[in-house]
Amino acid sequence: MKKTKFLIAAAIIGVSSIVAIAADHIDAPAVTGGTNDITDFYAFQGQNTSNLVLVANVQGLLSPSSTANATFDENTLIEFNIDTNNDNVEDLVIQATPRNGIMYFFGPAAPLQTGLDSTILTNDAAGSVEITAYGQNAITATENGMQFFAGPRDDPFFFDSGQYNAIIDGMATSFNNPGNDSFAGTNVLSVVVEVPKSLVGGSGTINTWVESKRRQ
């Protein structure tokens, strides 16, 4: 079995029984704008209520012109971590890594090691999907009871940063309804996997978080 080691670069953490959302569009200068910079993590029940959907967004604040040239970094592994016994240690992982325009998925399966280092679970291939190009209809794939997508999407995160700054500066006391979406017109690169709940803990409560890790 070929083993490729990745080390953690960034992480967003969430807790999921039905829905979890975490967002982080503004990182430290050394990370912001990097190809492995995570902007959002979503975990929610699928339209098929027997399924769980996990979404990782990277490379935020992409303009339409820069989106057309944006690509997933082939030296980056995106890893969805699933804790089934509430000890805050991953019991299962679903991994996604790109190669030559294809996003490959592995798991859910027990990681070869927990913590900051990861090795691709080449013996637990789940499926793959062609990465959707900007402006193209979404390409999805279904394999082994799971569904996959990878490609650019409109940034779903809403935040009125102008009003936030006014509140911080003492010029306002509350947000407007509706506010101004500071992220309108910007895009992200999304990795989406829909997995049967029976493969990741059944009907019980799970903790889940996502990490991006660079090849070492």
Score class of each variant (00 low, 15 high):
residue 143 E to N: 11
residue 102 I to G: 10
residue 131 I to W: 13
residue 209 W to Q: 02
residue 137 N to W: 15
residue 185 G to M: 11
residue 56 A to Q: 04
residue 109 A to M: 06
residue 185 G to E: 13
residue 107 G to P: 06
residue 20 A to F: 09
residue 87 D to S: 01
residue 87 D to E: 02
residue 62 L to V: 05
residue 87 D to Y: 05
residue 187 N to R: 14
residue 127 G to A: 04
residue 38 I to S: 03
residue 146 M to S: 07
residue 90 E to F: 07
residue 78 I to E: 01
residue 112 L to A: 06
residue 70 A to Q: 10
residue 46 G to T: 00
residue 121 L to V: 06
residue 82 I to Y: 09
residue 2 K to L: 04
residue 180 N to W: 07
residue 129 V to R: 14
residue 201 G to W: 05
residue 191 V to T: 15
residue 19 V to D: 10
residue 25 H to D: 14
residue 186 T to A: 03
residue 11 A to H: 05
residue 52 L to P: 01
residue 138 A to H: 13
residue 4 T to A: 13
residue 132 T to S: 12
residue 191 V to R: 14
residue 38 I to H: 02
residue 158 F to Y: 15
residue 149 F to G: 08
residue 117 D to G: 03
residue 178 P to S: 07
residue 126 A to N: 09
residue 146 M to V: 04
residue 157 F to N: 08
residue 140 T to D: 11
residue 63 S to E: 07
residue 145 G to A: 05
residue 101 G to Q: 11
residue 40 D to C: 09
residue 146 M to G: 03
residue 97 T to M: 09
residue 115 G to S: 07
residue 139 I to K: 12
residue 116 L to W: 12
residue 202 G to W: 03
residue 44 F to T: 03
residue 206 I to N: 03
residue 39 T to A: 13
residue 113 Q to E: 13
residue 186 T to H: 14
residue 119 T to D: 09
residue 9 A to I: 15
residue 214 R to H: 15
residue 39 T to M: 14
residue 215 R to V: 09
residue 89 V to Y: 10
residue 145 G to L: 09
residue 67 T to L: 13
residue 143 E to L: 07
residue 96 A to I: 15
residue 148 F to S: 06
residue 181 D to A: 06
residue 117 D to I: 00
residue 127 G to W: 05
residue 96 A to R: 13
residue 139 I to M: 14
residue 91 D to R: 00
residue 117 D to N: 12
residue 82 I to T: 04
residue 115 G to V: 07
residue 105 F to L: 07
residue 126 A to V: 08
residue 103 M to S: 09
residue 180 N to P: 00
residue 83 D to V: 05
residue 45 Q to T: 11
residue 88 N to V: 07
residue 199 L to N: 05
residue 157 F to S: 06
residue 31 V to A: 03
residue 29 P to M: 04
residue 97 T to P: 01
residue 202 G to M: 08
residue 90 E to G: 03
residue 1 M to H: 11
residue 90 E to C: 04
residue 112 L to F: 11
residue 67 T to C: 10
residue 100 N to L: 14
residue 25 H to P: 06
residue 36 N to D: 13
residue 170 G to Q: 07
residue 176 N to W: 02
residue 179 G to F: 05
residue 32 T to W: 11
residue 205 T to W: 05
residue 99 R to M: 11
residue 123 N to E: 15
residue 213 K to M: 14
residue 139 I to C: 12
residue 118 S to W: 11
residue 117 D to S: 10
residue 88 N to C: 03
residue 100 N to A: 15
residue 21 I to C: 03
residue 140 T to W: 15
residue 204 G to F: 10
residue 44 F to H: 10
